[in-house]
Each structure stands twice: as structure tokens, then as C-alpha cells.
């Protein structure tokens, strides 16, 4: 099968914090239109790896390739310039601001430093309706909205700025079932548009049913990268815990 070129390749990424080796020689790749599940227990290096991709951390060693070209990501704005957007579990919005202010945070439409509030409001309305996100009023503080609505605004923000790669860091952890489903439906929609999605979650069931491939990290190193359905849920859990690939699967791949 002729695979398309990966959107992102992170190669041989290492990162140490003082004496602590958070990542050693970790690899990750994402293809357009797929959901990659990134798994591992706490401290496995997932967060560090995606923070490096999102520009919130820098790698001690290793390289990142975007569409085959080496990318130098030294800050959140660099990552965004490459079309990498992140959805955080703790709902990365300012509760004291309204939806347009949050959508355009850090990229306000302005003339000579003066905000163009009207344009931002109109664009926000368009961006949200394109994803079928309904919000009562664009003038209300997002703090008064439900978790699902707020997550939808985060996703709307990412898509509006032409995200090619979407990092979703436990996007449903703070949400109820209904709202999680809303976020997942939205993600399926994004997948169709050819966006590559990195999905981080502790909910194995959700990951198993929702992702196309998985990458498991343990102690900052890769355990396995394979199509999700190559394994059973139990096998995935055991790999996360033990940090060793399941024998059978390893044989199949070889």
C-alpha cells in the first residue's frame, strides 16, 4: 500500500530536565486524515513530546519534519505557523473573555494596534456555524458556558486558523458523556477534512474505538506504533503498564 507522506514526523526526540530523562529517542508520525492515539501512563513522556511539537517545550535532541521538511519550532507561534494547534484538557480559554476574544487570542484582527471587534465577531460566528457549534450569544463570557461548548470553541479556534495537525490532550477528560460525544463527532468531521489528529487519552475504551493507529510510550521511549486494531484492548493496557510490546504483535510486524 502506498502510504501518503506523513504530515509530521518527530525523529529521535530526547529531552532531559536536569537529571531526569523525560524522553529518549522517541519517534512519532501522523498522516493526514488519521487519528493517532498517543498512550502511556503518567510520566511516560506523552505530555513532553506533544509540548515539544506544540512549541511549549524544546527538544534537547532530535528533529521535527513537517511535510518532509525540517521544522524549527521554538515557541507556540512557530508551531501555529506550521499549522499545529493544540486542544488542552483543561479548556484553554480565558473564562473572563467572550468567544470572539478567545478565538482570536494572540492573533487579534487589528489596525495600528486597535482592535477590529466587528470583524472578529463576524468571523467567529462564521467559524462556529461551519462546525455546527451553537452558542447562545457571542457576547457572553465563556466561563458561563458548558464544558462541551468551551471545548467546541477551542476546536473551532484551531480549525479556523487552518490547523493541519491537531493535538488533542485529553480533550474529553473534563466533559460528560454527551459532551464527549459532541467533541468526538467534531473530530470525525475534521478527519474528513484531511487533518491529522494526535489524540491523548487515558480512556482505553475511547482510544480503542476512536483511533486509527496508536503509539505507546513508556519511560520516555517508544514501545510500539501500530494500527490500533492489531491488538486487543487488554493487550494495549498491558503494553502501557509493562512497557514491552506484546510478543505476537511484534512477530507479525517483523
Amino acid at each position: 500500500m502506498a502510504k501518503p507522506d506523513p504530515l509530521v514526523e518527530m525523529r529521535h526526540i530526547s529531552r532531559n530536565f536536569g537529571g531526569l530523562q523525560a524522553l529518549s529517542n522517541a519517534n512519532l508520525e501522523v498522516y493526514p486524515g488519521e487519528v493517532l492515539g498517543l498512550l502511556g501512563h503518567n510520566g511516560a513522556g506523552k505530555s513532553t513530546l506533544i509540548k515539544i511539537l506544540a512549541g511549549a517545550e524544546t527538544a534537547s535532541e532530535g528533529a521535527i519534519f513537517i511535510n518532509g521538511h525540517e521544522a524549527h519550532i521554538n515557541g507556540p507561534n512557530d508551531a501555529r505557523a506550521y499549522g499545529i494547534e493544540t486542544i488542552y484538557q483543561e479548556l484553554a480559554l480565558c473564562g473572563n473573555l467572550d468567544a470572539p476574544a478567545n478565538l482570536y487570542m494572540g492573533r487579534e484582527i487589528s489596525n495600528w494596534g486597535f482592535l477590529n471587534k466587528k470583524a472578529m465577531k463576524e468571523e467567529t460566528a462564521k467559524a462556529l456555524s461551519r462546525l455546527n457549534i451553537r452558542i447562545k450569544s457571542l457576547d457572553t463570557e465563556v466561563e458561563t458556558m458548558s464544558g462541551g461548548q468551551r471545548q467546541a470553541i477551542s476546536i473551532g479556534r484551531a480549525v479556523h486558523f487552518n490547523a493541519k495537525i491537531l493535538i488533542m490532550d485529553e480533550p474529553t477528560a473534563a466533559l460528560g458523556m454527551e459532551e464527549s460525544k459532541m467533541v468526538m463527532d467534531l473530530t470525525v468531521e475534521l478527519k474528513k477534512q484531511g487533518i491529522g489528529i494526535i489524540w491523548i487519552s487515558h480512556d482505553i475504551h475511547e482510544v480503542y474505538n476512536f483511533t486509527d493507529r496508536i503509539t505507546i510510550l513508556h519511560g520516555g521511549e517508544n514501545v510500539v506504533t501500530a494500527p490500533t486494531k492489531d491488538f486487543t484492548e487488554d493487550e494495549i493496557v498491558s503494553m502501557i503498564i509493562s512497557g514491552r510490546p506484546v510478543e505476537r504483535a511484534a512477530n507479525e510486524e517483523a
Partner: peptide, 11 residues
């Protein structure tokens, strides 16, 4: 409102 969010959003 939220300094961490502001930073993450590139302010």
C-alpha cells in the same frame, strides 16, 4: 484572566 492560557495562545 488566565496567564497560562494567554501564553499558550501566543500572547
Amino acid at each position: 484572566g488566565n496567564e497560562r492560557v494567554a501564553r499558550l495562545q501566543g500572547i
